[in-house]
Write a protein that binds this DNA or RNA. Structure first.
Lengths: 169, 169
DNA sequence: CTTGGAATGTCAACAACACTGACATAAATT
DNA sequence: AATTTATGTCAGTGTTGTTGACATTCCAAG
């Protein structure tokens, strides 16, 4: 890997990677890779009258069962009005359950129903399969670098959300 | 970097990275990082009545001046009707020029005007600045791994488009 | 040369999903 | 008790994706 692209360092800092052309290449890689990243779930969702927004909601409700609408909002980075439309259809279709909070009755706690979990599994399997293949092809060192760069690319808020998710597990 | 996450290998293959939890972490990293990746250009475009679609068109027209609508379609992966709406506004606003092909009059060759190049520069600068920071923080080895994994994540069509862009430079 | 089909691009209508604004209810504060 | 703050819902709008119908140009078969 690292196919001989000149990793020469000067003063402890690599310079070649910082040319505009190298950066542009990274930008395009990100664009094309993200398309691949979402392709499989998109295929599954098409025809179900669901979209990427539903997928995201289902994903994070699965990861943090009992989470509130407000909580989900912070993670997803959309307006609550936008999220609400998605949640409403998921609840109507029996994939998500909404329970009024015990201590604070303003809050709605969200969980996946059995069929919700089933769809989550289906979507997640597809996405993980692609990720697994990519990881296998690239090897463990590349994967470590991959995560390092991605994390460095996040805004601080997102970085916090990213780590917070991992604490609760 | 690669903060001691157990990279133990068995039979030449790393195993830890292939657990569902590790894969899920990669999926979420991808999600949050892409948000950061698009955040800066989005900020610039908001208020100009332009969106991400316009940014993408401008980016690739800049990289391949004189490209045709059909060509752009293959790269962007949207329908030509969708692209057309975006191109029309860009042409009306004087950011893009469309010239009928000399040999084939069906084709329209697209180039950026001076003001189109100016906007491209502005958007590109913002996105490259974030990329540059991320690369610097992560270091050259991480960057190599980053690109390796991203490429492995692409569909074959996208991989071809990704490399084709680099040939013409 | 003409004609029928393929390729390229445009126009119109519709669906998904983001947004802002207005509002109802519950909690916290004074 | 009254006001302010927080949470969630409903309604309307805009961007951007989609499919369908169409005009123009090229090319190849007759």
């Amino acid at each position: 890997m690292a196919e001989g692209q000149g990793t020469g360092t000067v003063g402890g800092q690599a310079l070649l990677y910082l040319t505009d052309e190298q950066l542009r290449q990274g930008i395009e890689a990100m664009f094309f890779a993200y398309r691949g990243f979402t392709a499989d779930p998109d295929r599954i969702l098409e025809g179900l009258s669901y979209g990427r927004a539903h997928h995201r909601a289902i994903h994070f409700i699965h990861c943090a069962p009992g989470t509130t609408v407000n909580n989900l909002l912070a993670i997803l980075g959309v307006t609550k009005q936008s999220l609400n439309r998605v949640l409403r259809t998921l609840i109507e279709d029996g994939l998500v359950e909404s329970h009024v909070g015990r201590s604070d009755k303003r809050e709605r706690h969200l969980t996946l129903t059995e069929s919700g979990e089933a769809l989550e599994q289906q979507l997640s399997d597809a996405q993980r399969a692609r990720m697994r293949d990519a990881y296998r092809k690239a090897g463990p060192e590349a994967v470590a670098g991959f995560k390092t760069v991605l994390e460095a690319m996040m805004d601080d808020d997102m970085k916090r959300a990213y780590h917070a998710l991992r604490e609760g597990r």
